[in-house]
Design a protein around this nucleic acid. Structure first.
Lengths: 358, 358
DNA sequence: TTTAGCACTCTCCTCTTCTGAGTGCCAACC
DNA sequence: GGTTGGCACTCAGAAGAGGAGAGTGCTAAA
């Protein structure tokens, strides 16, 4: 059951119009734009309705796209959004202004996307287990306290304040510091065995449990495989489809409850962007929202997602383009280990968008 | 115009009841509890109404407390909430579970409070200018890149990835590192003058701008006087007074827009907790919400606030007690520089609550 | 001073009516 | 045969009317 060219045009006009107005669109509204009479449009619309692409809130209302309609729109009908210079500049300046520490890059990017799109954004990164420590510093605070600073192989920095039972002077700390730099760097989480820790303890005659404690901290940060951030949930409230508080709350709670993040969509192999529409979402709470998510690759061992959640009536084209751009920039910054992002003027088209559902 | 004992009892009963049910309370509802007939209560209520402590949504509805009524309640009527063992244990375990790095202590505390109270929470800390650097580490990434790690006098750790124009080897980096540890530690922001930077540049013959860049980064973190975090705004939606999306959105936007934080209340000199009710709030957006905020002191040079925002119908007593407890713990952890919090079992009463409005 | 009683008020619910946007379908037209 | 104007029809939503019930204010009696 293939759509005629005219049907496609009409479907597209309906969706474009609906995205803009959030009101069911009547035949008159689009008749002028297509050079056809409203009666003709009505006939076509009726067929589109029986084919499942459009629906009516009630008999004598205008038409509203169904998720299937959106799907077709996203897959073949919508104009690829070509980003304007102003848009890229907005994003670039946002990136420059916010991205300061690698550690917070991922959450900052989410914040930026949420501000730009006016939808809630989520961002997460995950890595296969291969993170290692690259450098340790143990910084003296007082004789019972020091800070363990560890610089990881991805150039993020973690620290923990550690208190001891019995005192330790700065020289002791230097010794431990050297020990860690010698024995615990370049080791993945599973290489930090009790044997290794015990061996180190034997060498230093550690009575304070310093090694145990720091090693514990190290294992903790190395195994921290995944980070998730959600921002801007309150943006939902400004969209007419979330005027129902209960509906809004369900989605917002779902997003805040980051344990549930697992059910959010992920672009398929070889694709960078995925759009899931309404019931295509696995999570019950998102069955009448849409998700647009972009993937960024840092290296073979780390990748991440950045996405937004919004009503099914979403400007898919623009959101997808923006997300792809930000994801690209993020991958660039993370793999170069560089928070300076010069802008990637040339590549503003989003050719690799994966907008097929499966 | 002093309230009779009986009027106080009635006012208290009305407010207690209203806090619980969120419905206007009628005379019958509280008559039984006070051993008086509903008619008597009605007469008293009518007077409380003319006195401004109660109001009616409409002529034949029950009574609802006015902000002035809440004020009296908070100042003299409400029972001081004595925290149960279970409650302190809930908080303590929350503290233990989340508070891991000093850097994130403040935001983590906000998150905890929001979860505990089911209200949006905000937390902020500010210090007078006296922060200094305590230790520098410049960590080699590649010849064009290094990470500047600086440990500050409050034992938080900041880092920044820095790229250079021309290469620098590990030995150079060590030299710079020493230089910074010699010349830039224990200096407040205003002591880092262009002269100082230039002098340092002269010593090392720095052509890479390393000193300039790191000094800039240092000034940036030292002058980062204030941090603000808001979490859990979506909790608002579960309260009946925020079923109106517009109302909820106004408050949520206000809170997300952290630039506006300045208008949030602060406990008065010598007091630890402040409660502002409805129109007592300076911010227009909060004129019909209430804020409970607790102060914590770390040392003479740093203090912070942690507070929640909710409907005027709030369980002031409980919220104030919890906030005071968390603030206390936070001050304790920050001044001992210790993220281990053993629990402060003894001091569970909140004697120093400042519930007077001015 | 307290209480019982009663008329009264006002919200909320339901039911009805009305209006207008938009449809579906038919007959005429190109 | 596809396209169009015309017209009867439908239905949501607004506006209005009536009824029920909760709770009041006031008065008169205890």
């Amino acid at each position: 059951m293939e759509l005629s060219d005219r049907k496609k045009k009409i479907l597209r006009a309906v969706i474009d119009n609906y995205i803009e107005t959030a009101e069911p669109v009547g035949s008159k509204a689009i008749a002028s734009g297509l050079g056809l009479s409203s009666a003709t449009i009505r006939n076509e619309m009726a067929e589109l309705k029986t084919m499942g692409y459009l629906e009516q809130p009630h008999t004598s209302a205008g038409r509203v796209p169904t998720p299937i309609g959106y799907r077709v729109y996203v897959n073949e009908l919508m104009e690829r959004h070509r980003m304007s210079v102003a848009e890229t500049e907005t994003i670039n300046s946002g990136l420059r202004a916010r991205m300061k520490q690698l550690d917070s890059l991922i959450s900052d990017a989410g914040r930026l996307v949420s501000t730009l799109t006016s939808y809630p954004a989520y961002s997460m990164s995950s890595r296969s287990q291969k993170l290692t420590a690259k450098r340790f510093e143990l910084v003296h605070v007082d004789d019972l306290t020091f800070i363990a600073v560890v610089i990881l192989s991805d150039n993020t920095v973690k620290n923990r304040l550690i208190r001891l039972m019995s005192p330790l002077d700065e020289n002791d700390l230097k010794r431990y510091s050297m020990l860690f730099n010698n024995s615990f760097t370049d080791k993945t989480e599973d290489m930090i065995t009790p044997q290794l820790v015990m061996a180190a303890e034997r060498v230093t005659g550690d009575e304070n449990g310093v090694i145990m404690t720091v090693a514990g901290f190290l294992i903790e940060v190395l195994s921290d495989v995944q980070q998730t951030f959600v921002t801007g949930t309150s943006h939902l409230l400004s969209h007419p489809e979330f005027q129902d508080v209960d509906k809004a709350r369900r989605v917002m709670n779902y997003l805040s409850d980051s344990g549930e993040m697992m059910k959010l969509p992920v672009p398929d192999q070889g694709k960078n962007v995925k759009i899931t529409i309404g019931p295509e979402n696995l999570a019950e709470e998102l069955k009448d929202s849409s998700v647009v998510v972009a993937k960024y690759n840092v290296d073979e061992n780390m990748q991440g997602l950045i996405g937004v959640v919004g009503p099914t009536r979403m400007d898919y084209s623009k959101v997808a383009a923006w997300l792809a751009y930000v994801a690209n920039a993020l991958g660039f910054m993370l793999s170069r280990n560089d928070t300076q992002f010069p802008g990637i003027g040339g590549r503003t088209d989003n050719d690799s968008i994966d907008n097929k559902e499966d």
